[in-house]
């Protein structure tokens, strides 16, 4: 097991390196010239060249990549020979000249809001999705099932910006049930934090819960027809034990897979909701950076998001082995 984990972590690092290289090459192929974007209308080719050098873009792509990798571990200095060198300390994910900040610092500042948003919604949607999914499965074909599945379908098909805007309009503007969203750390002002987060949590959870309801329901229906469930009943186990201990555990694996990957995806930023509720998270950072063509930040966010997905993949695989003893990780 531990050998497996070590091997997986190593291959994960390899994968990330490859991925960052691909990202690097892709961005270097973009028609937009970052150096050109550094100055406005009054640009001269000389200024652009100088800026290109400052950004470290005047060397071949692979050399740039090498600089990037070195920076990741040892930090790097941009425009070292110029009068105003820029220091970027390890781990250096790049430097945003637009914002005059290290990309790593930018992302680090934005991460808490995203993490809070993702985890809060995650817990909500798992609880709601799984329990309603089980409920629908047990009432299969009856009105309760149809209602739950109908609601799920609606939740599934509404776009998040629509629900978000409607919620803001009615709950915040029209009836003033909540104050205007303004993010603070929960350690600073728990009440304001909750008031800000509650709507995005619920909206995000609704979107995801719809999918988990369907998934759970279908899993349960499949598993409940299995032979070992009949065996559990034949033992005289109470139905709730049959459901919770035997059926749910057996149907859990795809739910775990989906949950792990969805959470990881969200940690890379919930672009739309963060923007609507002006949460200072990775998603809104990404949107702004795209608008500003702030390439170092975009590359940094892409890599961080990919890391989350890859790590989640490993965790899901490990959980698989914990849930299903037949899975052998070797």
């Amino acid at each position: 097991m531990s050998a497996y984990v070590v091997r997986r972590v190593l291959s994960m690092i390899l994968l990330l390196a490859l991925l960052s290289l691909v990202v690097f090459i892709l961005f270097s192929l973009l028609p937009a010239d970052p150096a050109r974007l550094t100055c406005g209308k009054s640009c001269t080719p000389e200024i652009i060249e100088a800026n290109r050098h400052r950004l470290g873009l005047d060397i071949p792509v692979f050399a740039q990549y090498w600089e990037f990798l070195k920076g990741l571990f040892f930090g790097r200095t941009y425009a070292a020979n110029s009068p105003d060198p820029v220091q970027c300390s390890a781990p250096c994910l790049g430097y945003s000249f637009k914002r005059g900040e290290e990309v790593f610092v930018l992302i680090k500042e934005r991460l808490p809001a995203t993490i809070w948003l993702a985890f809060g919604a995650f817990v909500l949607w798992l609880v709601a999705g799984i329990s309603l999914g089980i409920y629908a499965a047990l009432r299969r074909g009856r009105w309760q099932d149809r209602t739950v599945m109908g609601v799920a379908l609606v939740g599934y098909s509404l776009p998040s910006f629509f629900i978000g805007l409607v919620a803001i309009f009615f709950i915040i503007i029209r009836f003033q049930l909540l104050p205007f969203p303004s993010y603070v750390s929960p350690f600073e002002n728990p009440l304001q934090f909750l008031q800000t987060m509650i709507l995005p949590w619920i909206i995000l959870a609704t979107l995801y819960a719809a999918f988990y309801m369907r998934l759970t329901r279908n899993q349960m229906l499949e598993v409940l027809g299995d032979d070992y469930i009949r065996t559990a009943r034949a033992k005289g186990l109470p139905e709730r034990v049959v459901i919770r201990k035997h059926a749910l555990r057996a149907g859990l694996t795809p739910i775990v897979t989906a949950a792990g990957l969805d959470l990881a995806g969200l940690l890379g930023g919930a672009i739309i909701l963060e923007s609507i509720f002006s949460l200072p998270g990775i998603g809104s950072l990404a949107v702004n950076s795209v608008n500003d063509a702030d390439l170092p930040v975009i590359v940094g966010i892409t890599l961080v998001a990919a890391t989350f997905i890859i790590v989640a993949n490993l965790i899901v695989d490990l959980l698989y082995a914990v849930i299903d003893p037949r899975v052998r990780l070797s």
């Binding site: 695989d317 037949r326 899975v327 052998r328």
Partner: peptide, 8 residues
């Protein structure tokens, strides 16, 4: 042991 692949 039947080999069940992890999802990845």
């Amino acid at each position: 042991v039947p080999y069940i692949r992890p999802p990845s």
